[in-house]
Design a protein around this nucleic acid. Structure first.
Lengths: 242, 242
DNA sequence: GCGAAGCCTTGATTTCAATCAAGCGAAGCA
DNA sequence: TGCTTCGCTTGATTGAAATCAAGGCTTCGC
């Protein structure tokens, strides 16, 4: 798949189409020369749901921007218990600077499009361009804030509060219309019931029961097992506990 | 309390005594001129256990290095349920750049010594000195790794695994002798049973029962309710689940 | 020393979510 | 078409940790 190298109206070349849209990714922090240099080394991938991204020959030794879809980060205990420790939506940055191996598995939860760059190129640009480190610092601090909310959820919320919180989180990240003020949302769940369980520290069965309850109480509607419609976000948010 | 401004053997002035020891804090990333400038604006505080650090007049609008003691970061749900979301040991950096208010409470868990700087000064230096942002990025990424291990613990570990994991974490951070290879450790717990419960997503009673069990099985010894002795770290680590 | 307040432990009981078990429905394949 | 597999739901039972309850240690100030 070819890479667009046309020039933005501001005079800054655009590395990939999607990087143009929102600037939480890598590209928004670089100057024109760097973007041209980076474009020569980048490659776009389309990946099916279920594919391991770490350990994959194409992604080892590289950083990526998520262009579309959802990537799920997981860790496992020695006996096989699994926990989701992060979800990356477009245009998040994927990869851990300053560390060779991370013990974290990354897997495409839905079909995913990635734009990848060699680690060496990014690391050189980080030294040259303070703006890039600044951007990565901001993303890391945001992820840390999210992780802390997650910690509160796992440590102190009931199963029904966890499921409600999960739906609100996904709605905010996936449904383009579900902005802060929007009273409703409609989206496909990017995870199976089992993955949702691994995200919330619950079993598949408990997730299923709580979704059934929310549906029975008219808080959400579910079509085809995957598509969720929330008519009244406020009502759902009241069940999040916070 | 006066601030040491003597000169390190390398020619770099030392801002505070403790910053000299390890360099995960702010000061290690600055050049000589900046350190002298920073020293003029810094102030050292000694704080008793239980004191709120955020909302405190002296720490609002400032960043701090933890010089000694343990600071506990907590978040609360609307009905009062509380969860510890971070523990800061010397020489961690305290404060959230790029964000005015954070919803997070910081409290001295033990007597704490802090070295504080006005936010404005640090933020100016961040613009001038890429090294400072680099250091903050590294700390943020480390904290993110820790947060993800914590998420696994809260989501998937049993009460007894949680308590064992907590003891190992504290031993590594507090007992200066408990390095990777050390087979034993000895330290005072920086938290009450109730705080440990808020850290692990458990109740006081459950924490107490699990500690009693570890003691009964000879894995740990406890003196005066607070002092813990671990003769065989390996044996304790085997109970962490990972 | 004495009393009070916190912190901690222990026991009895309850409860919420896990586990065990079964069946449904859609998708993929022979 | 029929078979298998996978994801999901629902029901019955169990179990781990919460809750409720009481009492014991420390530490403090008086």
């Amino acid at each position: 798949m070819s890479i667009r190298q046309d020039v933005h109206s501001s005079g800054i070349p655009v590395l990939c189409q999607s990087c143009e849209a929102r600037h939480r990714g890598v590209c928004g922090a670089l100057d024109a020369d760097q973007l041209v240099g980076l474009a020569k080394t980048s490659s776009k991938h389309q990946v099916e749901a279920g594919v391991e991204l770490v350990g994959d020959a194409e992604t080892v030794g590289s950083y990526s921007n998520v262009l579309s879809g959802v990537v799920k980060l997981t860790k496992s205990l020695s006996d096989g218990r699994q926990q989701v420790v992060g979800l990356q939506f477009a245009p998040d940055f994927l990869g851990r600077p300053f560390k060779a191996e991370s013990e974290i598995n990354a897997e495409a939860a839905t079909p995913v499009a990635l734009c990848s760059f060699p680690k060496t190129v990014i690391e050189r640009m980080m030294k040259e361009s303070p703006g890039l480190e600044h951007r990565l610092l901001k993303q890391a601090l945001n992820e840390l804030d999210e992780a802390r909310d997650w910690i509160v959820m796992l440590g102190r919320k009931s199963a029904s509060e966890k499921v409600a919180s999960f739906l609100v989180l996904i709605a905010r990240n996936i449904d383009p219309a579900a902005n802060a003020s929007a009273p409703s949302a409609s989206f496909d769940l990017p995870l199976t019931r089992s993955d949702i369980g691994d995200f919330l520290g619950l079993t598949t069965e408990t997730v299923s029961r709580q979704l059934t309850r929310l549906r029975a109480e008219g808080v959400i509607r579910i079509e085809n097992n995957r598509h969720v419609i929330i008519d009244d976000m406020k009502r759902l948010e009241q069940r999040c506990g916070d």
